[in-house]
Computed example of a mutant assay.
Amino acid sequence: MFAPTSSDLVAEERKGISGFAGSNLDQLLRARGIRHVAVADFVTEVCVESTIRDAFDRGYHCTLLSDCTAAHSNQD
């Protein structure tokens, strides 16, 4: 397990399916002038899509890191 270093940004734990919901992520990014976000996570069809939509609605330019995401499959 990796721990954040003193130079890493650490957002508060989120309370929803978006990385922005219930967290201080937007404030951390805006305070540093960050306008472009790259998104990677698990459950692409829920959390990742929600985070990208939320970021876009807040005025961020978004890049989906497709090699760094995954989705559930109903295949046997």
Rank of each mutant, 00 (worst) to 15 (best):
R30I: 12
S7D: 15
H61V: 12
M1R: 09
F42G: 01
N24G: 07
E13S: 15
Y60C: 05
P4A: 13
S73C: 07
A31G: 12
D57R: 15
A38K: 10
T51Q: 04
F20M: 01
L25V: 05
D67K: 09
I17F: 15
E45Q: 11
A3T: 11
F56K: 13
T69F: 00
F42D: 06
G59M: 06
A21G: 01
T44K: 05
A31D: 14
R14M: 08
I17C: 04
C68Q: 08
C47A: 15
G16T: 03
L29V: 09
D54N: 14
H61K: 15
S18T: 11
T69Y: 00
T63C: 07
T44P: 00
G16I: 08
P4F: 08
A21E: 11
Q75S: 13
D76W: 12
Y60W: 09
Q75E: 14
G16V: 05
E13I: 10
L65Q: 03
A55L: 08
A3D: 04
S6L: 02
I34R: 10
D54A: 14
G33N: 04
C62F: 04
S6Y: 00
V37G: 06
S50N: 15
S23E: 03
E49V: 13
R32T: 07
R53K: 14
G16P: 06
L25M: 08
Q75P: 00
I17R: 01
N74Q: 08
V48W: 02
A31N: 13
C68Y: 08
A21H: 13
E12V: 01
L9E: 05
D41S: 14
V46Q: 04
L25H: 02
S6P: 02
T5V: 03
F56H: 14
S73K: 10
D67V: 00
R32S: 05
